[in-house]
Write a protein that binds this DNA or RNA. Structure first.
Lengths: 217, 217
DNA sequence: GTCTATAGTGCGATAGAC
DNA sequence: GTCTATCGCACTATAGAC
């Protein structure tokens, strides 16, 4: 049997297997996030990754398998987007402001996360399991953290922290969707800082029972 | 890119031209909503619509033109989803509840509107103008109605009705996205009625200044 | 390299409307 | 009869999965 070495792109010595898998995933990310699943081309992925098609297919079973691997790759360990533990030391309005700011930064114009959301929602009908992966790895942990935050600062049983967390997240994500994802900046103008401040004010008002609100600003 | 296509010839033939255009659009709806833009097949559309491909291409310039026409067709005159004028006669909590219920009904499992949202968001990177059409024809009118509703019931300048409307819509749409679109029902369980009631309670609390809330339920 | 699918077109035939 | 929208089908060229 002849040794199967094929120095196609001999930029240096042979790359490690992990490197190849990595660069294929990098190429897949570029391609799938730019074109969506159906219009993505395995040829272009192989080309961008600098591997031959047979190599690509030796690492990943088929297009669907590569897409699945990519989504796992992109959503694993990303749980902490916009939520760091130090938040629990801050007064509620400050904590909320930091979360809102971080989440909006992560989703800002044409960042990968924005495009990932486009692709996930777009393919959620045909890849329900991947959509759930997205929810489990991204949405759920963030929601749970915010729920904890509200629970910790909630004076009583009056407001349901789980619902408050969903309102808060929903208000932010919907803002991202209308303004950035759907390009509604000019149609539905709303300055980011005005929205964040108004949102937090309303949330604080909602969690404060009959007493008055803790002094902010 | 091309302006909306109109049916070509004015007068009669074997069958009315409007019928053909209609059935082509119906076929296009099936196809594009089921497969997305890239994976949709013009052959299948023609077949489902019961017309030949040359006929299809006599009504619509190309695939992109048909997709554009479809989105216009599906979003025109749909402004009143979940918002009817009688709402302004009701107390705020009842009005909000009716809106929430109607919007959630319209987006309920595997209804066309749900799939349309999937496609619109999925293709929003490649068809920004269509995404804006969606915002202009669906999102914006609903948001404006809800803003009016809050403005009308707002006791004072304390809360910004535009922000309250966005919070309310965002909370509902985000709920739809996590539960239905991304199939998160089992991962993030939250009963619909519990969410609606909690959401409205929080919104009312947020708009009520220092006085107590009007009695609801 | 192979095989399949797709967007888009050209053309002769057809079947009503007038 | 003429007019014309339409059909069916073959065809090109391209591109993609594997």
């Amino acid at each position: 049997m002849t040794p199967p070495d094929l120095p196609l792109s001999p930029s240096s010595s042979r790359r490690r297997a992990a490197d190849k898998a990595e660069s294929i995933l990098q190429g897949a990310m570029q391609e799938f996030l730019a074109y969506g699943y159906a219009a993505a081309s395995m040829d272009r992925i192989a080309s961008v990754a600098g591997v031959s098609k047979p190599t690509l297919y030796s690492y990943f079973q088929d297009k669907e398998g590569l897409f699945t691997a990519l989504i796992n790759y992109l959503t694993e360990g990303k749980a902490e987007i916009g939520v760091d533990p130090a938040l629990f030391q801050l007064p509620l309005p400050d904590g909320l402001k930091q979360i809102a700011t971080n989440v909006l930064d992560n989703f800002s114009r044409e960042k990968p996360l924005l495009t990932l959301m486009r692709v996930m929602i777009g393919e959620s009908g045909r890849f329900p399991a991947l959509a759930q992966t997205f929810v489990r790895n991204i949405e759920k942990p963030v929601l749970e953290k915010i729920t904890q935050l509200f629970a910790q600062h909630s004076d009583s049983h009056a407001t349901d922290p789980e619902i408050m967390a969903r309102m808060f997240m929903g208000s932010i994500i919907h803002y991202v969707i209308t303004q950035e994802v759907l390009h509604g900046r000019d149609l539905l103008p709303m300055e980011r800082s005005r929205y964040i401040d108004g949102l937090i004010k309303a949330m604080i008002q909602a969690v404060s029972q009959n007493s008055n609100v803790a002094p902010e600003e």
